[in-house]
Simulated scan of single mutants.
Amino acid sequence: MRQDFWLTWELTKREVAQRYRGTLLGVLWPVLYAVLFLAIFSFVFTIVLRVRWGQEGAGVATSSVMIFCGMVPYLFIAEIMGRSPATILGAANLVKRVRFPVHLLPVVTVNAGLLIAAINLVLLLAFAFVAGEANAGALVFMPLILIPLYVFALGVGWLFSAVAVFFRDLGQIAPVLVQMMMFLAPVFYPSTIIPQDFLPIFDLNPLTYFVEALRDALVGRFDALLWLRMIATYGIFAGLGWFVFHRLRSAFGDLL
């Protein structure tokens, strides 16, 4: 167990270093990407489409903070769903080693994505405090939302990476699925404008909980019971992902 922990740590560091090796900005690229993404969507949804936040409508700063709350979990999930199908396919040399713990490869992908999500969360908190949209409780509650988000991502990582070995079209389907999840969750608009008849569809989207929970945590609201329920639910999902990965593991070497 301890050996797996240190191996995961070293592989995660190598994964992050390799992603940005040779670039001018290095790990600042994810920060720049998040800022540009926020600026574009804030302009489109707040200025052009004039999406209203609150009964009387909110200013650009408030709307940007709300959109940023949606972006943090979305960018993380999009990262994991986009990269997971290639995790095993791109590591044939490691998979074919008899004693290598292949189940750690999806964990490394998730850990690298979590690092970027943590950076984005720090940016969100800083922006929210400067804009006067956060209170002290956000410093405690918002990082807690990353726990069920991480557990959900582990399930996606194990499931997608294993299934993609047998069904390689998953690498093409995953980006489409991510886009569907983005628009069928209140990432760039408030949940109050969703028609009542369609709310059950949005509630089935895992992204919806994380977006709404971050917005609530921003102002000090935290539903501990729902949070524990989400950890249990996504814990079961992660267990399912692990089970599928374990059952398919023996065939990886023959198909790569």
Rank of each mutant, 00 (worst) to 15 (best):
Y189W: 10
V176G: 05
F202Q: 15
G137H: 06
L49H: 04
E10I: 11
L28C: 11
F183H: 10
L256E: 14
V219Y: 05
F5H: 05
A134M: 07
V95P: 12
A117N: 03
I193V: 01
A117H: 02
L149P: 10
L28T: 07
M182E: 00
L104D: 06
V27G: 03
A153P: 14
V163N: 03
P200M: 10
L248E: 09
L89M: 15
A251Q: 12
P195W: 08
I201A: 13
N111D: 12
A118R: 07
G241S: 08
L146S: 03
L125D: 02
T87G: 04
F76R: 01
V163W: 09
A238P: 05
Q179T: 12
N93Y: 01
F37V: 08
P206Y: 01
D254P: 08
L114M: 13
P195V: 06
F188E: 02
L125A: 06
G82N: 06
I80G: 08
A251C: 00
V48Q: 14
L32M: 15
V98S: 10
R229L: 09
R229N: 10
L218K: 01
A174T: 12
M180W: 09
V178S: 11
P143I: 06
A224G: 04
A238N: 11
T233A: 15
V60W: 13
L25K: 07
R50M: 02
G235S: 05
L177C: 04
R14Y: 09
P200R: 10
L36N: 14
K13P: 00
L7K: 09
G253Y: 04
N205L: 11
I231R: 06
G241E: 02
I77F: 03
G171S: 01
M230Q: 15
G54K: 10
Q179G: 10
L38Q: 11
I145G: 00
L146N: 01
S161G: 01
M181S: 07
A58W: 12
A112N: 00
P106C: 11
K96R: 15
I116S: 12
A134T: 08
E79W: 01
F183Q: 08
V176T: 14
L218W: 00
L7F: 12
T233K: 13
M81T: 04
E79N: 04
M66Y: 02
I194E: 02
V140T: 15
L144F: 03
F245G: 07
G253F: 05
L38P: 09
L104I: 15
V219M: 05
S63G: 00
L154R: 02
F243Q: 09
L114Y: 10
L170S: 05
R249W: 02
I236W: 04
L228G: 04
A232G: 11
W242K: 14
P85G: 06
R229F: 02
E133M: 12
G239H: 08
R83I: 00
L123N: 07
A58M: 08
A58H: 13
L248P: 07
I77Q: 02
G220R: 05
A138I: 07
A39T: 14
K96L: 07
W242F: 15
V44M: 05
V163P: 00
L38G: 13
E133Q: 15
W29I: 08
T12G: 10
A118T: 13
M142H: 04
M81H: 02
P143M: 12
